[in-house]
Design a binder for these strands. Structure first.
Lengths: 95, 95
DNA sequence: ATATATTTGACATAGTTTGACAAGTCATTT
DNA sequence: AAATGACTTGTCAAACTATGTCAAATATAT
């Protein structure tokens, strides 16, 4: 889990930006960005879009990581049946 | 979506049981079972277990359908990126 | 040591989910 | 055509969960 947060942190550090700077841009508290990067809190869809814009990165890529985190959170409590359930869910996508 | 509800209805009808009978066993309102079967409401994990017991079917199989529904619900609003996100999430399971 | 950056925990509040209830439809029986 | 039985639908309060902020704690850099 936490593909999104790791990616955001990587992008932010590469550009030498502070949490506070990202926070100011997307108009939330610094603590929230910190939590998002460490996977302690989920970003909203809209926040992901704004972060992508500010970090000048591909919006769709970030949203994909965000969604992957959501999917993983769904099955993390059910390791025994997760694989089989994923297989079933996947059928929806092949159509 | 709604693998679980369809399966429950199928099992219930095969055994000629009424909604009200299932409802009584798992101690909820009939309306709730109706909604679960039609996918209007999610069953709780515990309800799935109790339904499996009462309908004399494999608990793990029902829980797998229940989880598949939850996974599908996660990506249904994101059709464009769902496939790629599923691919990423899947990596967790191959380990 | 000080200043700056980040993390943590607690909190209020906003938002969502839950299950029950009452009223509704629809099909069958009397 | 009224009554009955099975199921469905809409609404509501209560329970639960998520959200973002604040203040304080900790870590890092100068």
């Amino acid at each position: 889990m936490n593909h999104l947060g790791q990616k955001i942190r990587e992008l932010r550090e590469k550009q030498n930006l502070l949490l506070r700077q990202v926070a100011a841009q997307i108009e939330v508290d610094t603590a929230l960005i910190s939590k998002i990067e460490r996977g302690e809190r989920k970003a909203s869809r809209q926040q992901v879009i704004e972060i992508a814009k500010y970090l000048k990165t591909n919006e769709e890529e970030l949203l994909t990581l965000w969604l992957a985190d959501k999917i993983e959170a769904t099955f993390v409590e059910e390791p025994k049946i997760a694989y089989q359930a994923m297989k079933i869910a996947n059928k929806k996508l092949e159509k």
